[in-house]
């Protein structure tokens, strides 16, 4: 699904004063593309995702989706799995809430869980899974509804360094294979470059788009090889400079 963000502005009106979180953000997301958004803490990245997902309203500007009622999924910093449900029931949550939990869809979810290395844990409770496995269940839950747009809000930040690279690479492959239009928010410049078809750099709050880069790294390379390429290093330095510019 194509998504166009046009001059998005967000001001929070409090009793005493107004707080401008986002000044002006515009960019386009093409069908099947992954956009990474990087910016300093508190620059309004999560606010932007809340606006795109419909949980919050922008003060000004518009978001144009291809579909009138796009199916949007959200994946958070933590897995947000329900401890009283088994893995399959957690993965089917979105389908259930959208009244679309058919036998066919349950079978699809089971196959996805098997495909993503969770075959032996389908009927286990989440407390039996490792951090990386939990994030994979959260990803299956997000993909199960066959979303038009997937929003990832720092989904790997709770993982250790090794798992962070490994799980992000797994997720990248899954998203590319399924051609899911995705917006990823991250603090990690390396993650933004390795995962994104485009990297949107935001300024400090109230945020504007400072730069949009196209890493153009070979999708077939492993994340470690991507990180060792010259292109990656040059772009990393450039984004680092953007983020530290006043």
């Amino acid at each position: 699904m194509n998504v166009i963000l046009n001059n998005i502005k967000k001001i929070y009106n409090n009793q005493n004063d107004n707080f401008e979180a986002i000044k002006n953000i515009s960019f386009n997301l093409l069908d099947g593309e992954i956009i990474s958004i990087v910016g300093k803490s508190g620059c309004g990245k999560s606010t932007l995702l809340n606006i795109i997902s419909g949980l919050d309203k922008q003060t000004r500007g518009e978001i144009i989706f291809d579909n009138k009622n796009p199916k949007i999924s959200y994946m958070f910093q933590t897995d947000a799995l329900l401890p009283y449900r088994n893995v399959l029931d957690n993965a089917c949550l979105g389908l259930e809430l959208m009244n679309n939990k058919t036998n066919d869809n349950i079978d699809k979810v089971k196959n996805m869980l098997k495909e993503y290395g969770l075959k032996d844990f389908i009927y286990s409770k989440p407390n039996k899974l490792s951090g990386g496995m939990k994030q994979r269940v959260a990803l299956v839950r997000s993909l199960a509804i066959n979303p038009d747009l997937l929003l990832l809000d720092e989904p790997f930040s709770a993982l250790d360094y090794y798992n962070r690279i490994k799980v992000s690479e797994d997720v990248f492959k899954i998203l590319k294979n399924n051609k899911v239009s995705t917006i990823l928010i991250t603090h990690d410049i390396a993650e933004a470059i390795t995962m994104g078809d485009k990297v949107v750099v935001l300024s400090s709050s109230p945020s504007i788009v400072k730069n949009i880069y196209k890493p153009n790294l070979d999708d077939n390379l492993s994340f470690i090889d991507k990180r060792n390429s010259q292109k990656f290093n040059d772009l990393y330095k450039q984004i680092w400079r953007d983020l530290n510019e006043k």
Binding site: L55, T78, A80, L97, M98
Partner: peptide, 29 residues
Amino acid sequence: TDKLKIKLFKVFKASKSQILYKLVIPSNI
């Protein structure tokens, strides 16, 4: 009840009663 999980339910367009019966009550057993 965990605000993040409520947010997740809202993204999936859950109704108020779905949030209550499938999240709030079971989370507070």
